[in-house]
Computed example of a mutant assay.
Amino acid sequence: MAVENAQYDRNNPDNSELAKAFFQEVDRATQQAYLHAVSVPSLGPLTGLNGYTRRWGEMWADFLQGKAVMCMAACFGYVIETFVSDQRSGLAHRIPDGYTVTPQMTHGGTRPDLVLAEKSGREIAWVDLTASQSVDHIFDKAGWSKQISIFAEVTYPSLDPQSLTLMRQNKDNTGTLSQQEFDQRIKQAAETYAQVRKEWLSIGEIMSLKFLGDEIGRSAEEQRLNPEIRQDHISEEIRWYFNLPVPPDKKLVPSILTALGVRPASWGFTTGYPASQRAGETWLIDNAPQLLKQG
C-alpha cells in the first residue's frame, strides 16, 4: 500500500525530512511484514513473539479446521503491527541513528503505533499502521493535529476473502514467497474468491424477500408501517442459516445482505442503516469459513 495522509511541519523542514524518510522506512517494513504474514500464515517460529501472534496461531488453526473464528481481521492487524514494531521479528523498521522509536505510546485518549523521538524524549512524529479498508481513521482519533505537527498513516491490504484464500494456499509454507510466486498465487486466489463470491450470491437468492416473503406472516400494510417486522425476520433467518446462538447485530445485517447480493432496503433497512460489502464479507469469513475451504 502506501504512506497516507502525511502531515508535515513547514516551520521545521529538518524534522519534516527526517519524518518523511522514517515514514517511507515504516512503509517498507509494513509491506514486508504483510508479505510474510500472507506467505507464512502460520507465522512459524514468530508465533511466539507476543500474545497477539500466539492468538493468531490459535485462530489460524481453527480457521483451517473450518471453525467460525471471530475478529480475524483485527488480530491480523495486530500481527502486522507486531512484526513492524518488534525488532526481534527480523521484519521491523530500522531506527534512525541518534533517535528512538517507541511503539504503542498512550497520549490521553489516543495511542500512536509508533512514536519517533529524539534521545531526549522530545517527540518528532507519530505513525499509525492501518488496514487499507480503514484508511483516514486517524482523523477520528483524539486530536492528533493538536498534539503533534508531523504524522502519517501507513497502510497495508485489508484481510479479505481473497487474501484469506491466498493464505490457505500458503498454509504449508515456511518461508516468504518471492514477488513472482506471490503474484501468481494472488491470481489464483482471485479466481477462488470469484467462486466463493458466487456461492455467497447463491445463498443470497434464498435470503431474498421474494423467496422468504410468504413466511413473514404479516400483512404488507403492517410491514410497511413497521420496518422492524422484516428486519427481525431476516435477522432470524440469518441466525438459523448460519447456525448462530443469536441473530447478528441488526446494524450489521445490511452489510451481510449486501455481501450476499440482497438489497437491504427490501428488508426494511433504509435510513440509519449503512451497508458495506467488505464488512459483510468479513462477517461471512468469520461465520462461514467452510465456504472458503470449499473454494
Rank of each mutant, 00 (worst) to 15 (best):
P45N: 10
P247E: 00
K119P: 06
A21D: 09
A37R: 07
A275G: 07
F76V: 07
S276R: 08
R10G: 13
D27A: 14
Y99K: 13
Q184T: 15
Q290M: 11
I148V: 15
Y193N: 10
E222N: 13
T30R: 02
F242M: 08
T176L: 03
I206T: 13
Q231H: 07
Q162W: 04
N15C: 08
Q169C: 08
K210L: 09
V246Y: 11
P248S: 10
Y34S: 00
H137G: 05
A33P: 02
N12H: 11
I206G: 01
L43W: 03
G77F: 02
Q290N: 07
R185N: 13
Q223A: 12
N243D: 12
S235R: 03
W283F: 12
A68I: 05
F22N: 04
S85F: 06
S219P: 01
E215C: 11
M72Q: 11
P245G: 10
G51T: 12
M105T: 08
G261E: 04
K250W: 01
L260T: 02
G268A: 00
G280C: 07
Y99H: 14
W267P: 03
P45Y: 08
A142Q: 15
I256H: 01
L252E: 06
N170L: 06
P41A: 10
S158N: 11
R197V: 04
S255M: 06
K293G: 08
L43C: 01
A189N: 03
Y8K: 12
W126E: 00
P96L: 01
V154P: 03
P157L: 02
L291I: 08
R263M: 14
S266Q: 12
L292R: 06
S85P: 07
M59D: 05
D86S: 10
T102V: 10
T271K: 15
A279E: 11
H233Q: 08
T102L: 08
G109H: 12
S178V: 09
G90L: 09
R185V: 02
I80H: 04
G175S: 15
P45R: 11
V101P: 00
Q184K: 15
Q24S: 14
C71H: 08
I256P: 00
V135H: 07
V38Q: 04
H107R: 15
D172R: 15
V127Q: 02
D136T: 10
I216T: 07
D286T: 04
T130H: 02
C75G: 02
I124Y: 03
P45T: 06
E215T: 11
E221L: 15
G57V: 10
M105E: 12
M72L: 15
L114S: 07
P96G: 03
E153N: 07
T110R: 11
G48H: 12
A194S: 14
L43Y: 01
S85N: 03
E191G: 05
H107L: 14
E181H: 06
I80V: 12
V38I: 15
N173E: 02
D286R: 03
N243P: 03
L225W: 01
D214A: 14
D183F: 09
T47F: 03
C75Y: 06
A21Q: 14
D172V: 13
H233K: 15
S132Y: 07
F23L: 04
F151V: 09
R54M: 13
I186L: 14
T106P: 08
